[in-house]
């Protein structure tokens, strides 16, 4: 591969994984009050891998793109601080649309860029949908490998591995392609102070988007009944016989 290789990374702004979930007054969404927002952890692997490919090729451009309200600009700046070159903000206020509408908006923005690689996280840790990647690949008509745990680029082809139950699939794909990243693919870098300063001057293009009618309708968000703390069986090895008895006679699991 040569020339100006374009890579696009789709990133989402999500609540920090420590967030205590509170239900908003509409009964259907997260109450955003007091939430700390972060770059979706899986998307960090995606940004990192795109940067590594650019570094290996010694050329090219990494464009990060995010759909959401004004706040996603902070998330985009995080990715720019890691080293991405420029950003696109698909502005949409209000409740996030479903995965297919997100994929459609991303498709419209990404298609004209003709990227060699499109990267996403395997899943956003808020909706836990794991849908946007394979949907977007289908809309862009790109070959797709999801949940990538290892990536090796040679020329205009790549060898990848993805974890399946009891094994790993080894996959070959020709670029352009769309990949979604799993934990373990790499160790994402921290933004350096220099990177943070540089990110302030990098361009963020903004477009307003209007999603179509919903494909999935959320009717309620509820908190699961708290798992009641069970019983203290006892202390030390002396309590083992009682534990075994309970597992056998009460819980009937062994």
């Amino acid at each position: 591969m040569g020339g100006n290789v374009i890579q696009v990374v789709c990133v989402k702004r999500v609540p920090d994984t420590e967030t205590r979930v509170k239900v908003a007054s509409d009964g259907r969404n997260l109450d955003p009050a007091g939430v700390t927002w972060v770059l979706n952890p899986y998307d960090e692997f995606a940004v990192e891998q795109a940067l590594r490919v650019r570094e290996k090729l010694g050329a090219g451009e990494v464009i990060v793109i995010s759909m959401g309200a004004a706040g996603v600009q902070t998330t985009l700046r995080n990715a720019l601080a890691m080293g991405a070159d420029r950003a696109i903000h698909l502005r949409h206020e209000g409740v996030a649309p479903d995965s297919l509408e997100v994929a459609r908006a991303l498709e419209a923005a990404i298609r004209p860029l003709a990227p060699a690689l499109v990267w996403l996280g395997k899943q956003a840790v808020d909706d836990d949908a794991a849908q946007v990647g394979p949907m977007l690949a289908t809309l862009l008509d790109l070959p797709c490998v999801s949940v990538v745990a290892s990536f090796e680029l040679s020329g205009d082809a790549a060898t990848l591995e993805r974890e399946i139950e009891g094994g790993r699939e080894v996959i070959e794909v020709r670029l352009p392609a769309l990949l979604t990243t799993d934990k373990g693919l790499n160790e994402p870098r921290y933004a350096s102070l220099k990177g943070i300063m540089a990110a302030k001057r990098k361009p963020i293009e903004e477009f307003a988007v209007t999603p179509g009618a919903p494909n999935i309708e959320v009717t309620a968000l509820t908190l699961p009944p708290p798992r009641s703390a069970g019983r203290r069986v006892g202390e030390g090895a002396a309590a083992v016989p009682e534990l075994v008895r309970l597992l056998r006679e009460e819980a009937r699991v062994i």
Binding site: A130, Q131, G133, C144, S146, V147
Partner: peptide
């Protein structure tokens, strides 16, 4: 919602233009 189904179902949803509830 297995390794295979999680990859396949969203592709089918996009082809059909319908929503998917995963997991």
């Amino acid at each position: 919602a297995s390794a295979m189904g999680r990859d396949l179902a969203p592709r089918v949803a996009a082809r059909l233009g319908v929503g998917l509830a995963s997991d």
